[in-house]
Amino acid sequence: MTEHAALVQGEAIPRERVNAFLEAPRRGAGGVDMRLRRVGATSHNEPAHERQRRRWATQVVVADELARRACRERGLTLPGEMSPARMLAVVETDVADLGSIIAATLAHSPAARTLLAELAGEQHVPETVVQDYYQRNRDRFLTPEALRRGIDPFGVTAPEDFVPYRHARDGIVSELRRAAAHRAFFDWFDRARADVEYAVGHEHPGDPSHPDHEHRH
Rank of each mutant, 00 (worst) to 15 (best):
R148K: 14
D152I: 08
R15A: 12
G201I: 01
G206Q: 06
A89Y: 00
F162R: 14
A57E: 11
P153I: 13
Q135D: 15
E65W: 13
P110S: 09
G30Y: 09
V129P: 04
E145I: 02
R55Q: 09
E118P: 00
D170S: 08
R37I: 02
Q131I: 09
R169K: 14
E127P: 01
R178G: 15
D64R: 04
E11Y: 10
V196H: 06
A6H: 06
Q131L: 06
L142W: 04
A192T: 06
E160N: 11
V129S: 14
M1Q: 12
L119T: 14
E92A: 11
P14Y: 04
D139S: 13
G75E: 11
H204M: 03
E16C: 03
Q59N: 09
T128Y: 11
P205Y: 06
L176H: 05
G28M: 13
Y134H: 15
G30I: 01
A104W: 11
M87P: 04
V60F: 10
A29P: 00
F141I: 07
T77C: 03
P126L: 00
F154A: 12
V60M: 03
T128R: 14
R166A: 12
A199C: 01
A158C: 01
E197K: 02
L7H: 06
E127S: 07
T58L: 03
R193N: 12
R53M: 11
T77K: 14
A179D: 13
A29M: 08
P79N: 15
A29R: 12
L98I: 00
H210L: 00
A41M: 04
A158K: 14
T93V: 07
E127W: 00
V163L: 04
G150Q: 03
R35I: 02
R140Y: 08
D212R: 09
H124G: 10
A24H: 02
A184D: 15
Y134L: 06
A48H: 13
H215T: 13
P159I: 04
R69E: 06
Q9I: 01
R193D: 12
I13L: 10
A5P: 01
Q59V: 04
F186G: 03
